[in-house]
Amino acid sequence: MELQQLRYLVAVAETGNFTRAAERCFVTQPSLSQQIINLETELGHKLFHRLGRRAVPTETGEMFIGRARRILFEVETAAKEIQDSPSQERRITVGATPSIMPYWLPPLILEATGRFPGLVINTLENFHAPLLNAVVDGEVDLALISMPVDDHRVAAEVLFREPLLLVVAEGHPLASKPEVTAHDLADETFVLLGHSSSLASQIQRFCGDHDFEPRSGHHCAQIRTVKSLVAVGAGISILPKSARTSVDPVSLVYRKLSGRAPYREIALVRHLQRYQSHGANQFITLLRENVRALDAGKRETGGKAGK
Rank of each mutant, 00 (worst) to 15 (best):
M63Q: 13
A21Y: 01
R7Y: 01
K298F: 11
K241L: 14
L174P: 07
R69Y: 00
I71N: 00
V10A: 05
Y275I: 08
V10R: 09
A112V: 11
T60A: 05
L272K: 04
R161K: 14
P262C: 05
L272V: 01
L9E: 07
E213I: 13
A267P: 13
D187P: 15
R224S: 11
A156T: 15
K304M: 13
G95M: 01
E59H: 00
V180K: 03
D141N: 13
E139T: 15
T301R: 09
S216T: 15
R69M: 01
L165K: 10
Q34S: 03
R255H: 02
V167N: 09
S201D: 10
G302L: 08
L142G: 14
G233Y: 04
R69T: 07
V140S: 07
T19Y: 10
I284A: 14
T245Q: 06
G171V: 06
P117Y: 06
A296Y: 12
G303F: 04
T97A: 01
V75D: 01
A200I: 03
T181H: 05
V158T: 12
R115A: 07
N290Y: 02
E289H: 01
I223M: 12
A143H: 07
T97Q: 09
T123N: 11
R153I: 11
L6Q: 01
E81W: 10
R20N: 00
I121E: 14
